[in-house]
Amino acid sequence: MRAPKDFWTGAIYLVIGVVGFFVARNYSFGSTTRMGPGYFPTVLAGLLTLVGLISLVRAFVVEGAPVGALALRPLASVVGAIVVFGLAVVPLGGAVAMLLTILVAATASRQFKLAPLPLLGASGLVAICCLVFIEMLNVPMPLVGPWLRPLLPNF
């Protein structure tokens, strides 16, 4: 393989194209005059498969730059922060979920450490977000979730 970037991009296209093609074959294809729900996606997936294949072949023909190392720590932290929000927002409520999101995301930085000042800043940001989104814009997100409600009966 001489062009890894072409190879992997082609591989992504190929996989999505092939999967899309076979899934789309479950929908009726129709005819050119009366296109069924399967017509458009089948053609698109077929073309994407073709593009993927050409890219794969090209990866062995032309010269290309190597793919840089994946930065796994930032990737895991940032994606983790998003998932944590999804998991926490209903049972724990918006306030806690937001704080957790900020904390988990912050671990992406190599200079991350738990210090009082950034923690205070994060709490302030959460307070502002709660005020703007939950109180002012009425986003239906509980401020305090059912799991925490026994601890804070006044909310």
Binding site: I82, F85, I102, G121, C129, V139, M141
Partner: peptide, 22 residues
Amino acid sequence: RYLFPAIVLFSVIGVFTLSNST
């Protein structure tokens, strides 16, 4: 390093509000 957690937070809230679903 102080900015991006806030950006992540705004993105997540924004996406959540689309249809209030996780």
